[in-house]
Design a protein around this nucleic acid. Sequence first.
DNA 1: TATTCATCTCCTGGGATAGG
DNA 2: CCTATCCCAGGAGATGAATA
Length: 441
Amino acid sequence: MAPCPAGDAEVRGFGVRKRRVKERMDDRTRQRQPLLDTLVGYMEARYEHLRALLERADTAGGGEVITLDGRAYERLWSRVDERRIRLGGKENVRVLDQTSGKHVNVAAAEDAAFFEWAIVEVLRHTGIRIEEALELTHLSVRQYQRPNGEIIALLVIAPSKSDRERVIPMSAELFSIAAAIIRRHTQDGRAIPLLPRYDPHERQASPAMPYLFQREIGTNQDVISPATVVNMLRRRCEELAERHPGFLTTCFTPHDFRRLFATELVNNGLPIHIGAALLGHLNLETTRGYVAVFNEDVVHHYQEFIGRRRNSRPSDEYRDVTEQEWSEFEEHFDKRKVGLGGCTRPYGTPCRHEHSCLRCPMLAINPKMLPRLDEIEEDLLARRARAERESWLGEVEGIDLTLALLRQKREETNRLARIAPVNLGIPSIQPTPATRRVRST
DNA sequence: TATTCATCTCCTGGGATAGG
DNA sequence: CCTATCCCAGGAGATGAATA
């Protein structure tokens, strides 16, 4: 098609309309940003509540009333349950929620709540598109070894919009979520079931793969569909609206987490081209479009970044990430060294759990840290013996506490190592320039 | 602007349950 | 054991946003 001449009536007003659309999306993100923590907290609390309820209702007899977090539930028992047991199965754990008067299948509700929590966590920690999230498989969780021997967990995102796969380093939180999903699927010692997934865009089913977001609905094992996630988020936001007025007019969609992720990254000082690599954008303008929410901040960061780069390489603005920049990004991990090993939280994000390294999930999952734990234990035992000789009672108590945590950590590490991809025969990868660089066109 | 893709919405079907 | 009903996930078309 021939290009339209400037001033053509057909394109007049197009720029204005684009700006209005952009303003609407920015406003959407601004509205949701302060609500994110509430939503995340609610999802987590809801899962914890149902998990505890399942634990207690499972052992309760029919008619027994269970009180949990101020809510009363009556354990139900029906003829169907007896029939299921007679047929060699297990009864459904159902309760009557005495507050709402509704029947709840606790086992199903707990399972749903787990995956609801997990998908929200994955979306907000990775900023990936909903389809990419649902396409994550066991094989997407990889590791690669830095030249210094350190292992970094990576998430391989299959392409959905562009045709290039991308690899993003996993934060401690993200890895613990992935491990929780894998652990849930493999808790009875079986591998993650291989399932085909229907792709609504391609209109065809994929080959059978160990999808992470799959669950049992009735007798069917199915991969969770995008519509399910949308509906789930709407239901949860509606529930929250009863207590939190902010949710009365605001509902989250999966894509909102992506906008929030992009905004947070850039506001935390991550160079925009690395942000683009993490988000899988081919064009920096796209990333800028996502994050130009807090305008002054972003413009400031962006100008500063462009300015620095102009000084060193005046004529080459939209270039690939250089080896040096990428190493700098990687070296950031080295700056996060703590007593017991390495903390691989994302670039530019502060740790909210200061002095809690022993309980940090990232520290537990790296089996390479085990010999180091042994060394530390020896050291602690020696210090304890001395403290005891000198009758420093407070010190002995403190060391005992640390020792207990350390042993718990070791046990956890061994347990996780059995299910973590590290030991599942998944090959390590060295990312090639093709998989780790920003492409600017 | 053209094209691709995300989201919404409505319909269908299957599982769970209660009651006969 | 059968059937009615409810609930919810999945499928697919429609609509509009995102992207190149």
